[in-house]
Design a protein around this nucleic acid. Structure first.
Length: 269
DNA sequence: ATCGGGACCTGCTTGC
DNA sequence: TGCAAGCAGGTCCCGA
């Protein structure tokens, strides 16, 4: 489900509802997420004021007067802003209830997501993360350097969070199409110049997806319950066998490390 | 050190 | 129509 644009869309959507609010309580109905939710989350967060709502990679970081709540949406997670008395539905695992009369509700049918209480902004899952793709710390040189001597294919490289964060399966496919690079190409055999193009394509597709409110295929909904509209802008993802918008040739499909991969045999080399 | 594959879950779509 | 298989936006961890 959520890649960087969907997480960023969620962050921007919930931020104005959360800032300066006090947490009146945290209800955990189901703590069996990817990692069990620590029971101390409730007592540590209750009574505190929310001072920031930020994102690092695909993690949401809710800053409190003391400490942080760190949330990952996994494959099927979403956050909604709702009136506090709204009855929970199936898979609504956690509520963060605010003194303003609203609740931030976490839903995650597959339970691949996670919620952590952090005393400080430090966690092993944040330690090894690469640069943010939309920052100046990321460019073609980042990719070229990471790819030196590597035999692995370029799609796996750009989906590796130690190389660059936030690029999941949809946007990896899209960026490689925009850059005209075949996903199966060995990463170490691609020129500086083509990596500059790929880095620019990653930035461009992520920015445009954020502007559109993300991509909604199945589960993903924004904090207000509405879908994002980038689905209509997808050039290759979910279009296997359909004509390439560039040359009309049917798009090819392969699996790369278990993930659906779509590309144009003619436009991507 | 690097890499691929399995594992974790539920729900929806597809094909027999 | 019913059922089982296959597939889905992530990513950690293990064994080769």
């Amino acid at each position: 489900m959520p890649e960087l644009p969907e997480v960023e869309t969620t962050r921007a959507g919930i931020e104005p509802h959360l800032l300066d609010c006090t947490i009146a309580g945290v209800t955990i109905r189901e703590n069996r997420l990817r990692w069990p939710i620590s029971p101390e989350l409730t007592q540590m967060a209750t009574g505190q004021t929310i001072v920031s709502v930020e994102r690092r990679a695909k993690y949401l970081l809710i800053g409190l007067s003391r400490g942080f709540v760190m949330i990952h949406l996994g494959m099927s997670g979403s956050l909604r802003i709702l009136p506090a008395q709204t009855a929970p539905q199936k898979h609504d695992h956690v509520d963060i209830i605010l003194n303003s009369g609203i609740t931030l509700r976490y839903r995650d049918p597959r339970r691949f997501g996670s919620i952590f209480w952090l005393d400080q902004l430090k966690h092993r899952l944040l330690d090894q993360l690469g640069p943010e793709p939309l920052s100046a710390d990321f460019d073609g040189e980042t990719l070229f350097e990471a790819a030196r001597g590597k035999l692995r294919n370029v799609k796996t490289l750009i989906m590796d969070a130690e190389v660059v964060v936030g690029v999941g399966n949809i946007y990896a496919n899209e960026a490689l199409y925009l850059a005209g690079i075949r996903p199966t190409r060995p990463a170490g055999k691609i020129s500086r110049k083509r990596y500059a193009r790929l880095a620019a394509a990653i930035k461009s597709v992520l920015e445009k997806a954020i502007d559109a409110g993300g991509t909604s295929l199945r589960d993903f909904l924004k904090e207000d319950g509405k879908p994002g509209y980038f689905r209509h802008e997808l050039k290759v993802y979910d279009r296997a066998g359909e004509p390439c918008y560039g040359c009309n040739k049917p798009l090819s499909a392969v699996r790369i490390t278990g993930r659906a991969t779509v590309f144009c045999m003619r436009c991507q080399r």
